[in-house]
């Protein structure tokens, strides 16, 4: 089974600082998103069960080191990697990302299963998987916590984690599946895997390679600022009992207790 895993690299959120309400991302390293690692692990597990090939597909989106960062996916077990890097896609909206990924999947010309994380670590819109499914005319199964392929029947079977229920569904291949974090515990590659990854095939494509043009924007970001919080910032002192006293008194004053 040919599996393509769409992988996004994000600025490492632990290292993003807020200055004057703005997020400072300069000099912040990128890394593959947590849910994409779950998707990669799911692909590697499926390959172990039914055989086939795993391709990691990444849109650089302004990450100048994307071709380096994607090697983590190769170390995790992907057989090949493709990075789409084009100045016209430095800060794309979700429609542009989906169009580029869909064009790349067509160019790869062998995809039975297309895996995504349910959302990206930074913006978590969850739009790209469903948009790619629509562009390629494929069925979509979102929020999978279990993925099994019955290649002989030509279907993928998933358990989906919905708001209040678990739903087992089947879709004919090829299909788009997005995964949630409960699906697995991604393995951390060892030194051997990291070394082996260096010799695996890695291609970099531009929009011209895909026969696509720069996208027309469908969205405009007006502003992106940290919320201002107005809090009292009272820290109690003393023993546990003294602090408990002061806190409970405060809650009574605030009308939270003793109403």
């Amino acid at each position: 089974m040919d599996i393509v895993v769409c992988v996004k690299t994000n600025p490492d959120l632990q290292m993003v600082r807020i200055k004057d309400r703005e997020a400072v991302t300069e000099a912040v390293p990128y890394k593959i998103g947590d849910l994409e690692k779950n998707a990669l692990q799911a692909a590697v597990d499926l390959r172990a069960a039914v055989g086939g090939k795993v391709v990691a597909l990444c849109l650089a989106e302004g990450n100048r080191k994307a071709a380096e960062d994607i090697k983590v996916a190769l170390a995790m077990g992907a057989d090949e990697a493709v990075v789409i890097d084009d100045p016209a896609l430095a800060a794309p909206d979700q429609a542009a990302v989906a169009a580029a990924l869909a064009a790349a999947v067509k160019k790869l010309d062998a995809c039975d299963l297309l895996l995504f994380g349910e959302g990206s670590t930074d913006n978590y819109t969850g739009q790209v998987g469903p948009r790619v499914a629509e562009l390629l005319g494929l069925p979509q199964i979102s929020y999978a916590r279990k993925v099994e392929a019955a290649a002989e029947r030509g279907v993928v079977r998933c358990v989906r984690s919905m708001d209040d229920m678990l739903e087992t569904v089947e879709a004919p291949l090829p299909a788009v599946v997005t995964v949630v974090s409960e699906i697995n515990e991604p393995t951390i590659p060892g030194l051997m895997q990291i070394m082996k990854a260096k010799s695996k095939p890695l291609q970099v494509w531009s929009l011209a390679d895909l026969g696509s043009e720069g996208p027309a924007p469908v969205r405009e970001v007006v502003s992106n600022l940290a919320e201002e919080q107005d809090r009292k910032h009272i820290l109690f002192e003393g023993s546990a009992a003294e602090q408990a006293d002061a806190f409970v008194d405060a809650l009574i004053r605030e009308g939270v207790l003793g109403r």
Binding site: Q229, R231, K232, H233, I234, L235, F236, E237, S239, A240, A241, Q243, A244, D245, F247, V248, A250, I252, L257, G258
Partner: peptide, 27 residues
């Protein structure tokens, strides 16, 4: 968490929580 809190109790939760439960009995 204290930077966004109105009230902060600084201490080991294993001491503070029993103290709070004890104090709340008298509310």
């Amino acid at each position: 968490i204290f930077a966004m809190a109105d009230y902060g109790l600084v201490g080991d939760l294993y001491e503070v929580l029993p103290a709070l439960v004890e104090r709340l009995k008298n509310v």
